[in-house]
């Protein structure tokens, strides 16, 4: 009897060690972990939007690289990011896509409903690093920066108050010394594009993902990029640095804020670092995948490489740690908003 009990006991201990043993004696490698699992990839926005299409394009390639099944889901704007932060898989089976300037902007400006801290996410990659472009209405008579500076009552279009478009426009007014207001309330970027084409607003400052196509269709005119570099999408458009614009030192943080931006892929806080690193490597590998780039080029118009997650992580931490950034952005927005 005792012998039998001992045998059963040893067998039970053996089983439990097998079941949990790999956790105790040595973790699975990330490759082994992801193989056969299901990754939920949340897009924080509507189906069919550029970020959603990019995620859906990358998903099958990610499946091939990792051996995991990838399922893309849509959640409403901030809800996706909140979900990822609070309820996302700590094992690393949740990804989320959202524009990086919206992630950090909503956090530091304390937008209602935000339940996360932007710098605590694990940033895997920026799959579409964007350059901000000043897009003018074809009906706007001012063709040069000097002419714009002399104009009165310019109207910039934006969607949400203190959203990326609104802040970019407000900071542009401040940096370039333009006179005018930011009109918020447009439903989306496509509505703004139409409004520009009609001449209802004079300009918007937005990422360059549709810059080439919208200009070819006659809706907008790309005047200049807001940073130090030209855009790969519209390489003929000069940067403000080339036009001789010097950014004052006190405006440098806000300028950096509006010019850093892309489509960030994030994981929740608390994911084992080796798994984060593994996916970062996978995404950089995908960045060099010719088939994927070809597919993305059809969607976006160009094949810009992904930005490494570590670089994006550092950028986000830097912006979050700047204590005065939020106040400066707030003050500039209040100065130029048309809302009364």
């Amino acid at each position: 009897m005792a012998k039998r009990m001992a045998t059963v006991g040893i067998f039970m201990i053996f089983l439990s060690l097998m079941a949990g043993g790999h956790e105790v004696w040595g973790a699975q490698s990330p490759e082994e972990f992801f193989h056969g699992k299901t990754i939920i990839w949340i897009f924080s926005g509507d189906a069919g939007s550029p970020g959603d299409l990019i995620s859906r394009n990358i998903a099958p390639f990610l499946e091939k690289e990792t051996g995991a099944k990838v399922r893309v889901e849509n959640k409403k704007t901030d809800e996706g990011v909140n979900f990822t932060y609070n309820k996302g898989s700590k094992e690393g089976l949740t990804l989320c896509t959202k524009t990086s300037d919206a992630i950090i902007g909503n956090d530091i400006l304390k937008a209602p409903g935000v339940q996360y801290e932007a710098d605590k996410f694990n940033y895997v990659s920026d799959v579409y690093p964007a350059i901000k472009v000043f897009q003018a209405s074809p009906k706007l008579p001012y063709k040069t920066l000097e002419a714009l500076r002399k104009a009165k009552g310019l109207r910039a279009g934006a969607t949400s108050a203190k959203g990326s478009l609104a802040l970019s426009s407000a900071v542009t007014f401040e940096i370039l010394g333009l006179d005018g207001k930011v009109i918020t309330g447009f439903k989306g970027k496509k509505d703004l594009t139409l409004a520009l084409a009609r001449g209802e607003v004079d300009f918007m400052v937005t990422s360059d993902n549709a810059a080439k196509r919208d200009e070819a269709d006659g809706y907008i005119i790309n005047r200049f990029t807001m940073g130090n570099k030209r855009s790969i999408a519209v390489p003929q458009v000069p940067s403000i640095a080339e036009l001789g614009v010097k950014i004052p030192k006190d405006l440098s943080p806000v300028h950096k804020f509006i010019t850093s931006g892309g489509t960030a892929v994030i994981m929740p806080p608390g994911v084992p670092p080796e798994r984060v690193e593994y996916l970062r490597k996978v995404f950089m590998k995908l960045s060099d995948n010719k088939d994927l780039q070809k597919s993305l080029e059809k969607l976006t118009g160009d094949d810009r490489p992904f930005v490494p997650g570590k670089e994006l992580q550092e950028e986000m931490s830097e912006m979050k740690s700047d204590a005065g950034l939020a106040a400066k952005l707030d003050a500039i927005f209040k100065k130029y908003t048309a809302v009364r």
Binding site: E79, A111, P112, G113, S160, K162, G163, T184, G185, V339
Partner: peptide
């Protein structure tokens, strides 16, 4: 949430 102004109308912070 009124997007054009950033004002929370009758939601009282509820997601």
């Amino acid at each position: 949430y009124q997007h054009s102004t950033g004002v929370d109308r009758f939601a009282f912070g509820n997601d």
